[in-house]
């Protein structure tokens, strides 16, 4: 229980669902079910693409993303399968 603070360097990767609002990030990898993953990538969410979360639905789900100048809405569960790196 009493974990020592890790000596490892802080890993910057996290999933999109945990990205704070309006914070820019870059897509590292897209995971999840094949059909969904393919659809996300076909909409332009390929690795390297900048993305940010611009809104959260009033009931907490889904999220509204801004990517390549367009707005997409995806559920939290799916956002968790998107790994990102926060931009500085």
């Amino acid at each position: 229980m009493n974990k020592q603070p890790s000596a490892l360097p802080v890993i910057e990767t996290e999933n999109l669902a945990d990205l704070p609002l309006q914070r820019m990030a870059q897509i590292l990898s897209v995971g999840g079910d094949r059909a969904l993953r393919r659809r996300l990538m076909e909409l332009g969410l390929v690795p390297g693409t900048p993305v940010k979360v611009v809104n959260i639905a009033p009931l907490g789900d889904p999220l509204e993303l801004s990517v390549r100048g367009c707005r997409l809405s995806i559920r939290r569960k799916q956002a968790k399968a998107l790994l990102i790196r926060k931009s500085a």
Partner: peptide, 12 residues
Amino acid sequence: GKTVPLLLELPP
């Protein structure tokens, strides 16, 4: 059916 992966464009 599979639960729909909601993927929705919010057009301007």
